[in-house]
Design a protein around this nucleic acid. Structure first.
Lengths: 341, 341
DNA sequence: TTGAAAGCGGTACCAC
DNA sequence: GTGGTACCGCTTTCAA
């Protein structure tokens, strides 16, 4: 726990020079800076966090609120937390965890105590209680996800609507007429924001392209592989030849296993596109085209916007949607020939 | 962001009285205190975190290091993070996340910057790089889990060894002679601390009771339901009549499903005991006796020890093991009659 | 039972 | 290019 005056003495300079050398907010002669850096290294100096918070205008801490519901899909959630932490550290920021019970009181607390510079909101519900809270406090916040009422909020997310439309288009262009969406768990369509966005967008596009779009979920509250397989079976029996998967990894695996067991091969017998998958799709039993949800991309952008909201060029309130990318892996049937074009 | 002097003015007292009224470190007249509390409420006052850290001797923040490996079982991990956060908040503490890439540098950083009062170490590996680090820094740390080399460290955990022995005893007492352990994933026996502890302790006790103990894992890197079922099938075929489950929820479900499909009923045909399960075993397809691992119990104790290591009655370095409890659900065959007693 | 004031360890302004 | 120093907002000693 060396202090700045010890560093100053060791380097034979004043306290302020040490401060400026470290912050870079004022030019410091090369050799002076090197002497200081050497002293810092030898003393294992790291500026006192409390003093820095008090004297400076930054705490170098972001809060991350996450309402860990029991139906939260843990692996996906963890990927976002990790990506956020990594992105924050790259900017010299630490992450303070605000969990459920404390999520609401916690947000007010860290805001009014000046513990954090900004709040990142994870696992956003369509009707999220943190929305009014975010509006009420002075600390800037960035939502990773899009609540229904997002007026004046800074929200980051994959453009799920476009992603869903792209998936439908891909299947339509390949000549499919009866397609289906294998979605998230039933409860996710109420407690989370993006599942309904995908479903609604897919339905709209299917209607525009005059396709029949069926739907099956992948469980009630938790992912249910057996239920997912049953759903896929029903879809296939109903003559579906194109599948959009928007579910957890386990459900993807279950769906593809079911196809394989029924002797249906991709893409010969059935086309498959995965939308918004945040896991490594290479680990799936069958290679499928994907329009991935990349946690790192969302979290990097969220952190960037959080940083910017501390300075002069505040980001525009509104949706900051990340354009989806279609990654082909040959799971689409060849487009229909001239006859149907 | 009201400040303490505003509260003082509003309550018509001095700054120090406000401070003492809030900290309780000095008696304050009842009506004075009430005036202060009223002012605090009306102004939405919350003491400035930086100032408090700087002036006081506590930061009111604990670091939580977690090396989110790709093979980490996310749901279990999340349960521990959540339990830790809740326990910490009950003591007025917040949790700062230190993830992987930064786990090592991060520990040094938060220690030398005085950002946190103590460090909680999660997801402990047998040969954990954070062990030497914890010894090197001044900030006290508490390990939730037991590394091989734990000399001088404060470690909290369920007494897995005793739990494993209890499970073996339960099966032995019920008259079983060929029993088996369905364990974690293969990789967990290298990257995590408790799976080998359970396995070794079970083997030792089985030997002492002259039982044959077979072993099957529940996957390579990730939980693999199919592999688990295959393993259970092999065990049953080998004449095993008593099963100890020490694996993730999905693997429990797979194992029990396999038994059910083979027409084996619990406990008539086979006895089952779950050891160290940290999820809700009531959600399993079959009721089983359990010797649960309760995240809240471990995390509460860890936080308590962390608090104590800041004050006068520092906890003894060493293992602080939580005694296991056997919770019966009728999944054990009735003890053998007099003939074999 | 209460108040005044000296720090805590940085940051950043003002001088030189 | 460098140094002196007045804060930042709280905690806690000392005094009354």
């Amino acid at each position: 726990m060396a202090k700045i005056d010890e560093v100053a003495k060791a380097a034979g300079v004043s306290i302020s020079t040490v401060s400026y050398a470290l912050s870079g907010k004022r030019p410091v002669a090369k050799d002076t800076r090197e002497r200081i850096e050497k002293a810092v290294r030898e003393l294992g100096y790291s500026p006192n966090a409390g003093a820095r918070m008090l004297a400076g205008d930054r705490t170098h801490i972001f809060a991350l609120t996450e309402p860990l519901r029991t139906d939260t899909h843990a692996p996906t959630h963890m990927a976002f937390v990790l990506a956020t932490a990594v992105a924050a550290r790259r900017q010299g920021y630490d992450i303070l965890l605000l969990t459920d019970e404390e999520a609401r009181a916690g947000m007010s607390r860290v805001a009014s105590s000046g513990l954090v510079d900004a709040i990142l909101v994870l696992d956003v519900a369509p009707d999220d209680p943190r929305v009014p809270l975010a509006r009420a406090i002075a600390t800037p916040s960035v939502f990773i996800g899009v609540p229904d009422d997002n007026d004046g909020l800074v929200c980051v997310d994959l453009d799920f609507e476009t992603a869903a439309a792209m998936a439908v288009d891909a299947l339509a262009d390949a000549g499919h007429e009866r397609i289906a969406l294998v979605g998230q768990t039933d409860i996710a369509y109420r407690s989370s924001n993006f599942p309904p966005r995908v479903r609604v967008a897919a339905e709209r596009r299917a209607a525009e392209r005059s396709l029949s779009l069926m739907f099956r979920s992948s469980g009630a509250v938790m992912v249910d592989p057996a239920a997912t397989r049953r759903g896929v079976r029903e879809l296939v029996d109903a003559g579906v030849t194109g599948l959009i998967l928007h579910c957890a990894q386990e459900a993807h695996a279950a769906a593809l296993d079911e196809l394989a067991e029924r002797g249906l091969s991709v893409p010969t017998d059935i086309s498959v596109v995965a939308v918004g998958s945040s896991f490594d799709t290479a680990a799936l039993p069958t290679a499928v085209d994907t329009i991935p949800l990349i946690p790192q991309a969302s979290c990097d952008l969220a952190v960037e916007l959080a940083m910017r909201s501390l300075g002069a060029d505040r980001p525009e309130p509104g949706l900051h949607l990340i354009p989806p990318t279609y990654v082909g892996h040959g799971s689409l049937r060849r487009p229909a020939g001239p006859a149907s074009s």
